[in-house]
Computed example of a mutant assay.
Amino acid sequence: MEDFQKIRIDSVEYNIVDSIQDFRAEDSFIHRSNKLAQFNGNGESKKHVGTYVGTKGEAMSLFFEYFDWGNEHYDVAKKRKTFFSAQDSNAVVQDGTCFFSKSNLLKYLEDAKTEYFQQEQLYHNDISQFYNNRYQEVQELPNEYEFFSIYDASDNKSQSQNRGYIRSDDAIWRLWRELILPKISYLSILKLTPVESDIATNKPLFFFRVLLDYQYRSFVHPSTLGVLVNKIEEIIPETLKKAYRIGQERYRKDVIEYMPQCPFSKITDERLLTASHIKPYSVCIKENREDQALDYLNGLALSPTYDRLFDQGYITFTNDGELVCGTQLSAITWERLGINPNAKNKMRIFPEDRSEYLQYHRKHVFLDDLRDII
């Protein structure tokens, strides 16, 4: 990589100097109102972020710039020693430098709306009753970026697992615990420093983001797909099913004829190419746009790894066909994929007559907000 990947926050450009990606939200962390039926308990407000021993522990300490994990601290309020305490300055991991984004939380709720109401997972409660109030509470947050502090809530050093936890007493921490759904939600943290600063001396910021497992996002939700399959059975009489299958085969053939090479891997063997929909097939069917579902312009010929990157929203393209890389993957992952997200002359596709589909992908499938990508 020639330099750091960048992101724009409040009109300020930041380097992504490090990241922790895709920590699953355990049921034990989830607010009690969202817990799965198979589990009991109220949920704990501390979030697991790794182990604080060995090589992984060193990496976690360097990431948070905190090296006192698992030690006893003094709780001023309770006047006793404890293994975590927000009142002890030695237990503070980061003081006011962490933040959630309102737009990210709203996007998460939009992605999770179908699961809130269809409930593919089995919950203790009917979680649909909470959705509208939670969405409104996020909308009413006073700031686009809500800052908070975190402190060490780790297992003490006498315990063999040495699990590292963080916790916060700020209101935004409570709110995100109430929003997210267990097992299918993930946390990623970006460590940021301003581009126009000395990285070695400038105090970093930590951008906390939540996302939903791809299969549970509203437009590809399992329950939604089941409804769409039934819909296809209804709208296509038995006599036309063969013609429909022929249409799908024709779609793949036309996509690959129009785009005979994966722009990333340069593979031309059509046996190894996927005709990847730009606007998802399920959305086209749901909107009664079978014409779009079988339109070869609504497709890209990609080899499997890059098909997955595009299909699940890690990358997208501008209307001019320029590659846009999101910030959900680590620098080492981009390097192993053979993609430089910081390249001045990024790889392009030929986007003729695809702008409507590409616009949908950027708005609804791409995991990042395009306005923040530099």
Rank of each mutant, 00 (worst) to 15 (best):
D295W: 03
I349Q: 03
G326P: 04
N340D: 15
E322L: 12
P280N: 10
A301P: 02
N345L: 11
N298I: 02
P304I: 09
D311V: 03
E290H: 07
L302V: 12
W334M: 07
S276D: 04
F310S: 04
K266C: 08
T318C: 02
G313W: 00
S303L: 06
Y306Q: 05
G326W: 02
K344I: 12
A343I: 08
T274A: 13
D291Y: 08
K344C: 06
E290R: 08
M347E: 07
T305Q: 12
T274H: 11
T305I: 15
G321A: 10
K266P: 01
D291I: 10
S276R: 04
S265C: 15
E290G: 11
E257F: 12
T333D: 10
C284F: 06
I349P: 03
L297C: 11
R348D: 00
P341C: 07
Q328D: 04
I339K: 05
K279L: 08
L294S: 01
S282A: 15
I267M: 09
G321F: 07
L309D: 00
E287G: 04
L300F: 10
Q328A: 13
T305N: 14
C284Q: 04
Y314Q: 09
Y281I: 05
F317R: 01
R289M: 02
L329K: 14
V283M: 11
D307L: 07
I339W: 02
D307E: 13
L297E: 06
F310D: 05
S265G: 11
E322N: 11
N342D: 04
A343D: 06
L297G: 00
K286E: 13
Y306C: 10
G299A: 12
R336C: 06
P304S: 12
I278P: 00
N288F: 12
G321Y: 04
R336G: 05
N345A: 13
D307A: 09
A331F: 08
L309Q: 02
M347G: 04
Y314F: 15
